[in-house]
């Protein structure tokens, strides 16, 4: 496997302090390798966005990181912990090393500026010495890469469709050639036709420019198709992580299986859809033991008291995957 570019170790994020705190991200261990697309799936409230904000230190109060490390491996030089950067170092690191496209980002473009200006402003902020001319050439090139023709450069956001605005946001994320791009539900608000076009373009760009992607969505069928590896989140924890095809064909965690059997298939024979009984857990009153146990069809004796740790399962392909479930006790914990 390629070398790691971003390693999240034992990351914990709370909202609020003291007794009132809710633990939104719990002991998360996750590694992003160079050049890969890592998919992060889970239902609403499972902590996907909190994890993304946490690892980029963009959490707004009352969110606080209560522990862990986020180790970044730059292309040159030694690795460092992002959580230890000063504010100034952090500002340089964001966009240039790691860029983020947030949920609903297409609505966060500044309505009073032309899209070309918004792109050149990013360049200006990070490299004040760059000439006006090369800035605008770079912006034009980037927009072309994401499929926006030069004659739309001077459009204002409201003159563009949702899909085009989302392309602009992706262009903006890539303009400083970051190593890591984090995308939180980048296409959820778009139609399937537009979604496929944008994702196809992103994958192509990744091959050309060589960045890595953390792709967050609740649409597991989309992830199976577009990512190399998938991590499944439930109640603030990663409960399973494996190559995309392995998750699809042979998920081990009952929650992953439940998610997969919640999607009607468009092709092939009609499968019986089992779905997942019950409703997502409440962070304030997280069940003891495995937090999935009240909904789990396989729950047994240890599940309601002891938390299963994420680790290599005892399966033949155990080396390339991990799961947190008492049905597959960890041979070797992750992290």
């Amino acid at each position: 496997m390629a070398e790691p570019v971003l390693e999240i170790r034992n990351l914990n994020v709370d909202y609020g302090l003291g007794d009132r705190a809710v633990h939104a991200v719990r002991d998360v261990n996750l590694t992003l390798h160079r050049g890969e697309v890592l998919g992060l799936a889970g239902e609403s409230g499972s902590g996907k966005s909190t994890l993304a904000y946490g690892m980029t230190r963009l959490l707004a109060p009352p969110g606080v990181i209560t522990g862990g490390e986020v180790v970044y491996h730059p292309q040159q030089g030694p690795a460092y912990d992002v959580l230890g950067l000063t504010d100034r170092q952090l500002r340089a690191w964001r966009w240039a090393e790691t860029a983020i496209v947030f949920q609903g980002a297409m609505n966060s473009l500044n309505p009073v500026h032309k899209i070309s200006t918004q792109l050149t402003d990013v360049l200006k902020a990070h490299d004040p010495k760059m000439s006006e001319h090369s800035r605008s050439a770079r912006a034009r090139e980037m927009l072309k890469l994401v499929g926006i023709s030069a004659d739309r450069m001077d459009a204002y956001p409201h003159q563009l469709s949702g899909g085009m605005r989302q392309r602009v946001m992706i262009g903006m994320a890539l303009i400083l050639q970051p190593q890591v791009v984090i995308m939180d539900e980048p296409t959820t608000a778009l139609d399937v036709v537009m979604q496929r076009q944008i994702l196809g373009q992103l994958i192509e760009l990744r091959e050309r420019l060589g960045f890595s992607v953390i792709f967050i969505t609740h649409d597991l069928s989309l992830l199976v198709e577009f990512s190399n590896r998938i991590a499944i989140m439930y109640g603030g924890r990663i409960v399973e992580e494996a190559p995309a095809a392995t998750i699809y064909r042979d998920a081990l965690h009952p929650y992953s299986k439940g998610l997969l059997s919640s999607f009607p298939a468009l092709r092939g024979p009609k499968r019986e859809l089992a779905g997942i009984p019950g409703s997502p857990p409440d962070l304030a009153g997280m069940p003891a033991g495995c937090s999935f146990h009240p909904r789990c069809p396989k729950a047994f004796e240890p599940c309601n008291s002891a938390i299963p740790v994420l680790g290599r399962p005892d399966t033949p392909d155990g080396a390339g995957r991990s799961v947190a479930c008492w049905l597959h006790p960890a041979e070797q914990p992750v992290g």
């Binding site: 469709s161 899909g163 036709v193 076009q197 649409d219 199976v224 198709e225 095809a245 699809y248 468009l266």
Partner: peptide, 28 residues
């Protein structure tokens, strides 16, 4: 056909994301 080809398809695993030839436009 375009709509159906665009829907996520887990059986079409990573790598062979062919850009849609069925659409002459920009998805608009």
């Amino acid at each position: 056909r375009l709509l159906i080809d665009s829907a996520p398809d887990p059986d079409r695993l990573t790598g062979d994301v062919d850009p849609l030839e069925e659409d002459r436009g920009n998805g608009e």
